[in-house]
Amino acid sequence: MTDTPISEMSFEDAMKALEELVSRLERGDVPLEQSISLYERGAALKKRCEDKLKEAEEKVAAITLDADGNPKGTTPVEGL
């Protein structure tokens, strides 16, 4: 685990930490109290990933729309 606060993690770092955490929980060899702590951290990591994705969506929208909110002739990214 990294010492970087979740609020300062990049999307990639938060996703990697979340994947590692899920892997630990799936193994099932973590005591209940630690599982609860890990689950809480996982929820925070998931939220960080969602927030970073939303930021990216907003940046893409700002780049691809003109001042009137009309497309600038670019194709929107599928799934965003």
Rank of each mutant, 00 (worst) to 15 (best):
P31G: 07
G79A: 14
T4F: 05
E19Y: 07
G69V: 08
L80Y: 12
I36M: 05
K46I: 04
K72H: 00
V22D: 00
A56Q: 14
T74Q: 10
G73D: 05
L32G: 08
S23P: 01
L38I: 10
L38C: 02
E19Q: 14
K16S: 12
T74N: 07
T2M: 15
A14E: 01
K54W: 05
E78V: 14
L18M: 04
V22Y: 04
L25K: 02
A44K: 13
D68S: 05
A44N: 13
G69A: 04
C49N: 02
G73T: 10
G69P: 08
L25G: 02
E50W: 03
E12S: 12
Q34N: 10
E58F: 09
M15N: 05
K46Q: 15
T4K: 11
S23G: 10
D51F: 02
L25Q: 01
P71C: 10
A67M: 11
N70M: 14
L45Y: 04
I36K: 10
K52N: 07
E20H: 05
V60R: 12
G79W: 06
S10M: 08
E40W: 08
E33Y: 08
G73K: 04
A43Y: 08
K16G: 01
R48F: 04
T75E: 15
A56I: 10
E8N: 14
L53T: 07
K46C: 06
R41F: 08
V77H: 06
V77E: 05
A14K: 00
A14T: 00
A17H: 01
K46H: 12
I6K: 01
M1T: 08
S35W: 00
V22L: 06
E20A: 02
Y39V: 15
S37V: 13
L53A: 06
D29N: 13
E33F: 11
G42M: 12
A44Y: 06
M1Q: 11
A14M: 06
